[in-house]
């Protein structure tokens, strides 16, 4: 308040693009994404790590952007829902969610998609229990999760050896 508060340079690869910004140290990754980079796809549903709507991948690891200081992602790669589609083409997770009716109000969708990307990157053929476990840190009030589980399961049903973009 009295003294000017020092700001710090934040640099990261966000959805494949280098960004550099001057930020306050207490800014969360979610604030930087939403307010500074105008990447509002990641949502704040609770701000305390429960609902999962803000989940992004930092160097491939899922993180609650609301409980992650931006500076903790310094120099790392950040993937948000906006970065899933490549060259305008929807990713396979996005397509599966759309086709299986896994999206209703859409507020939890960005976090669910990131959780799906993370799961499939580690476990390409998850069973239903593994899917439910993975998304159990993501609250959806609309779907009862059934169609989300179906969408993720469909993605994991490609035979081994088949191309996994």
């Amino acid at each position: 308040m009295d003294q000017p508060r020092p700001k710090q340079i934040f640099g990261a690869q966000v959805n494949g693009q280098g960004v550099e910004l001057l930020i306050a140290p207490q800014e969360t990754l979610l604030e930087v994404l939403r307010d500074r980079l105008e990447l509002t796809g990641s949502k704040e549903g609770c701000g305390e790590g429960v609902c999962g709507a803000c989940t992004v991948l930092v160097d491939g690891q899922p993180r609650r952007a609301c409980l992650t200081l931006a500076l903790e992602a310094q120099g790392l790669s950040v993937l948000t829902v906006e970065g899933l589609a490549q060259g305008g083409e929807l990713s396979r997770e996005q397509r599966a969610f759309i086709e299986h009716g896994a999206i209703q109000c859409g507020y939890c969708t960005p976090g669910m998609l990131m959780a799906t990307r993370d799961l499939l990157s580690r476990e390409p053929f998850p069973d239903e229990a593994a899917i439910r476990r993975q998304i159990s840190g993501h609250v959806c009030r609309c779907t009862g999760y059934a169609k989300i589980v179906e969408a993720v399961a469909a993605l994991g049903q490609a035979a081994p050896g088949e191309e996994q973009p």
Binding site: R34, E38, L39, T40, G41, S42, K43, E44, T80, V81, E82, L84, A85, L90, Q94, F97, I98, E99, G101, I103, C105, G106, Y107, T109, P110, L113
Partner: peptide, 23 residues
């Protein structure tokens, strides 16, 4: 018919604007 919803692509892309996203 079982049809994907017309609004779902924008939501899947994170492009749908909710009130708190509007600036």
């Amino acid at each position: 018919q079982r049809l994907p919803r017309v609004d779902s692509e924008a939501k899947a892309r994170g492009a749908a604007l909710f009130a708190g996203d509007i600036r």
